[in-house]
Design a protein around this nucleic acid. Structure first.
Length: 412
RNA sequence: CGGGGUAUGGUGUAAUGGCAGCACGCAUGCUUUGGGAGCAUGUAGUCCCAGUUCGAAUCUGGGUACCCCGACCA
């Protein structure tokens, strides 16, 4: 992408009403634009990062047997009265059409997917089944806050699993924990994201959250350093020790809930009469699990974790572009050629080809945007027959040959 | 939803009852080019509705939006 053609521009100052780091930096860098509290537009760079996260998640969900679908956001009231959540869920957006008919804007999709699954599941041969979608959710947050961390409309991956018995559900639940670990690892927050025991509601003792430790977090967890698991503050009264090793010496941390997995058992199957016939022809309820990840929240969490005073520092797998090529030479020939060559071998490059910007401004922009690798072409590098490369996360600048440069990016 | 705060060009800000000013951005021209360049000329603003006043960005009332703390968050 030639930066001279990029839709967005950077800003020196953050909007005064954004306080959180993720909101400030994403706005300054032109990754997102706020439409209203808790509702954001993803601009080209932010959208690319979001898509990277989406693809990481999709790959893991497909590896875990998930089949992707897309359910509607606009949903009939009737589905929500079946479970009683039309009345009890107080963050449900309700809309009314001209005839007075009422609808919900989906905050989650159990009420839609269970009746859907009922149309296709009738035998033990149809199970297990794993369906997921990546789609916008709506929740009437009375206080949207912290930029992307708590929105009213936000992109979420939700997978629903359907099982013939509890053993199968539990097995898949453990498998999902592994898939989630892979996702957060690839997203660059693996080392500081802890599986956390949280309230399980009325059907199981626990649910599990994936909590990314950062001072910007709005949750409080108690961390067992040796087991690398945590307990959510909401469980503190009933669980004051590590659920794995019994250690009572837990560390209090602030964290962001980036994912949640939940054992639903037959809660929704019962409500909608979702059952199957077993090997003996006996009718049995289907057991369910559900597994969510907020993509925008994860994006925001990554920024909270990976930034410095100058800007964002994107992990390679979620960066909008792998490299930021900056030309500050008099002529653009060398940079143009490198841009074409890298593009030809499939390297995602943001090319700062702007002719009217000073080197200082280009470097400052590059630090703010935070692509993992910076390549600088100047009269000096051209004269030396080399390319200057610097990792965003490091200070050292290296001069390398064209072949070294191409090889470095080819691997990725 | 309870409490607190804020609202002035695209962005950040100044003006405490008397000519809406500055910086960045943007536009045009010239000069400049390794860490947010210089000069010149332009461009663009008082959240909304009432009220007080000779006169309101400024005071009063109402509304709206946004931010922060708390509550809420299957």
């Amino acid at each position: 992408m030639r930066q001279s053609k990029l839709f967005t521009k950077t800003q020196k100052d953050a909007p005064k009403d954004e306080i959180s780091v993720n909101a400030q930096m994403l706005a300054r860098a032109g990754f997102t634009d706020k439409l209203m509290a808790g509702v954001y537009t993803y601009l080209p760079l932010g959208f690319r990062a979001l898509k990277k996260i989406e693809n990481i998640i999709r790959e893991e969900m497909e590896n875990a047997g998930g089949q992707e679908i897309l359910m509607p956001s606009l949903q009939p009231k009737e589905n929500w009265t079946v479970t009683g959540r039309w009345e009890t869920m107080d963050d449900l957006y309700k809309v009314t059409d001209k005839s007075g008919k009422e609808f919900a804007l989906g905050p989650t999709h159990e009420e839609i997917i269970v009746p859907l699954a009922k149309k296709f599941i009738s035998s033990y041969k149809d199970l297990p089944l794993y369906l997921f979608q990546i789609q916008n959710k709506f929740r009437m947050e009375l206080r949207a806050k912290s930029g992307l961390l708590r929105g009213r409309e936000f992109l979420m991956k939700d997978l629903y699993s359907f099982h013939k018995d509890e053993a199968d559900l539990n097995e898949y639940y453990e498998k999902m924990k592994g898939a989630y670990r892979n996702i957060f690892e690839k997203a660059g927050v693996g080392g500081i994201t802890y599986i956390t025991f949280a309230s399980g509601g009325s059907f199981s003792k626990y649910s599990h959250e994936f909590q990314t430790v950062t001072s910007a977090g709005e949750d409080t967890i108690y961390l067992c350093e040796s087991c690398r698991v945590a307990v959510n503050k909401e469980m503190r009264d009933e669980q004051d020790s590590c659920p794995v090793c019994g250690n009572k010496n837990l560390t209090e941390k602030r964290s962001i809930e980036v994912g949640n997995i939940f054992n639903l058992k037959t809660k929704f199957s019962d409500a909608f009469g979702l059952s199957y016939k077993d090997e003996n022809g006996k009718e049995r309820p289907v057991l369910m699990g559900c597994y969510g990840i907020g993509l925008g929240r994860l994006l925001g969490a990554i920024v909270e974790v990976h930034h410095d005073a100058k800007g964002m520092v994107w992990p390679e797998k979620v960066a909008p572009y792998l490299a930021h090529l900056i030309n500050i030479a008099d002529s653009s020939n060398v940079a143009d050629n490198l841009y074409d060559e890298l593009s030809a071998i499939g390297v995602e490059v943001l090319y700062d080809d702007r002719g009217n910007k000073s080197p200082g401004e280009k470097f400052a922009d590059s630090d703010l945007l935070g692509m993992p690798n910076r390549v600088v072409i100047s009269d000096k590098t051209i004269e030396a027959g080399k390319y200057e490369i610097k990792k965003r996360s490091e200070k050292e600048v290296k001069l390398i040959s064209r072949d070294e440069l191409l090889n470095m990016f080819k691997k990725k």
